[in-house]
Amino acid sequence: MTLPVPCAVDLRRESLDGVLDRVERSLQVRLDRETLVRKRRTVGARTDRRTWVRIERRGFDRIGAQGWNGPESAAVLSGVVMPWWYAGFAWREPGEPVMWRADEMELVSAAPVGQAALVIEDPRLPDAWWYALNTSLDALAAQSAPRVATPDTETITQELVTATLGKVFPGVADTTVEEWRPAHADLTWANVTGPEFCMIDWEDWGMAPRGLDAATLWGHSLAVPDLAERVWSERRPDLESRSGRLMALFFCAKVAGPHAHPEDPRLKPARREAARLIVELHASG
């Protein structure tokens, strides 16, 4: 069955007074409208309880059978540096195949390392930050997940990996993912804080090919060669597994594929790294 596709909406340009009023009534908080952070499909704000509320709009076509409670389900994870989750609720937008969800969680004082997914300058993170990253990713990978990850709100499957790589790098004959582990699934520089480390925005977490998180952070570092090298070095066991190399190539396919932007600072390094990864995948059989 094909789900209806909702009307495209950019929350940076929409009036959200009704949505914010509903969230305040349901969670019994007062949102500080002056701290409102707007993104294309999410908004967030501080509250009078010194917490943070994140609100997202998502179409039915992007909500799988597992439901849509990523931040809530991630609250059971241990050993991962992340905000405490306190409460959440969801509702349907009248007349549209769209759901809204609001989650109240711990207010994180540190700012995101990047204002966008990628960085173009080295953030010069301390060694303690890298230790916390490694500890958290190792702890996450050692646990179980009742969900499948949805990077870019799309459920990641073997079929998706094969189709994506086949379209951009048809020379890679074997795209079989051998290892699947729990992943944050949106580990960009906008979703980690610094200099004090914390992983935020857990709505897409779940089972994914080993190395997805490391490859995502590495890929968004490609415009800063020293930083990309540091990410690869820190997460070498993941990235140099066969699944990890496939995930690194999967990232490169998104940057260098049919929708490549000629001014993307990651484009040239992504093409160069893709050539290297293809050789290594062939060599490993």
Results as ranks from 00 to 15, higher is better:
residue 57 R to Q: 12
residue 57 R to M: 11
residue 57 R to W: 15
residue 58 R to M: 13
residue 58 R to I: 15
residue 59 G to P: 05
residue 59 G to V: 11
residue 59 G to S: 11
residue 60 F to G: 04
residue 60 F to N: 04
residue 61 D to F: 09
residue 61 D to V: 13
residue 61 D to H: 15
residue 63 I to H: 09
residue 63 I to K: 01
residue 64 G to E: 06
residue 64 G to M: 01
residue 65 A to F: 05
residue 65 A to T: 07
residue 66 Q to L: 01
residue 67 G to N: 03
residue 69 N to W: 15
residue 69 N to K: 08
residue 69 N to R: 14
residue 70 G to L: 04
residue 70 G to R: 00
residue 70 G to A: 05
residue 71 P to Q: 03
residue 71 P to T: 01
residue 72 E to M: 05
residue 72 E to T: 00
residue 72 E to V: 04
residue 73 S to C: 01
residue 73 S to R: 14
residue 73 S to P: 00
residue 73 S to K: 09
residue 74 A to G: 01
residue 75 A to W: 13
residue 75 A to K: 00
residue 76 V to Y: 07
residue 76 V to W: 10
residue 76 V to C: 11
residue 77 L to C: 08
residue 77 L to H: 07
residue 77 L to S: 06
residue 77 L to G: 00
residue 77 L to M: 11
residue 77 L to N: 03
residue 78 S to G: 12
residue 79 G to N: 04
residue 80 V to D: 03
residue 80 V to T: 08
residue 81 V to I: 14
residue 81 V to Q: 11
residue 82 M to E: 03
residue 82 M to Y: 08
residue 82 M to S: 08
residue 82 M to F: 09
residue 83 P to R: 10
residue 84 W to K: 13
residue 84 W to Y: 12
residue 84 W to R: 11
residue 84 W to F: 12
residue 84 W to D: 14
residue 85 W to L: 04
residue 86 Y to N: 04
residue 86 Y to F: 15
residue 86 Y to L: 12
residue 87 A to F: 07
residue 87 A to G: 08
residue 87 A to E: 15
residue 88 G to R: 02
residue 89 F to N: 01
residue 89 F to L: 14
residue 89 F to R: 00
residue 90 A to C: 10
residue 90 A to K: 13
residue 90 A to R: 14
residue 91 W to C: 04
residue 91 W to I: 09
residue 91 W to S: 01
residue 92 R to F: 07
residue 92 R to E: 14
residue 93 E to F: 09
residue 93 E to H: 06
residue 94 P to V: 07
residue 96 E to F: 11
residue 97 P to L: 07
residue 98 V to D: 00
residue 99 M to Q: 13
residue 99 M to K: 05
residue 100 W to A: 00
residue 102 A to Q: 10
residue 102 A to L: 11
residue 102 A to D: 05
residue 103 D to I: 06
residue 104 E to G: 00
residue 104 E to T: 01
residue 105 M to V: 03
residue 105 M to F: 03
residue 105 M to L: 12
residue 105 M to Q: 13
residue 105 M to C: 05
residue 106 E to A: 10
residue 106 E to H: 11
residue 106 E to I: 02
residue 106 E to R: 11
residue 106 E to Q: 15
residue 108 V to Y: 10
residue 109 S to E: 15
residue 109 S to I: 10
residue 109 S to Q: 14
residue 110 A to P: 01
residue 110 A to G: 09
residue 110 A to D: 12
residue 112 P to S: 10
residue 113 V to W: 05
residue 113 V to P: 04
residue 113 V to T: 02
residue 114 G to V: 01
residue 114 G to P: 02
residue 115 Q to R: 15
residue 115 Q to Y: 09
residue 115 Q to N: 12
residue 115 Q to D: 14
residue 115 Q to T: 14
residue 116 A to V: 11
residue 116 A to T: 12
residue 116 A to K: 12
residue 117 A to V: 01
residue 118 L to M: 15
residue 118 L to H: 13
residue 120 I to N: 07
residue 120 I to W: 06
residue 122 D to H: 15
residue 122 D to W: 05
residue 122 D to Y: 10
residue 122 D to Q: 07
residue 123 P to I: 07
residue 123 P to M: 08
residue 123 P to G: 02
residue 123 P to L: 08
residue 123 P to R: 02
residue 124 R to V: 10
residue 125 L to V: 03
residue 125 L to H: 06
residue 125 L to Y: 03
residue 125 L to P: 01
residue 127 D to I: 07
residue 127 D to V: 13
residue 127 D to T: 13
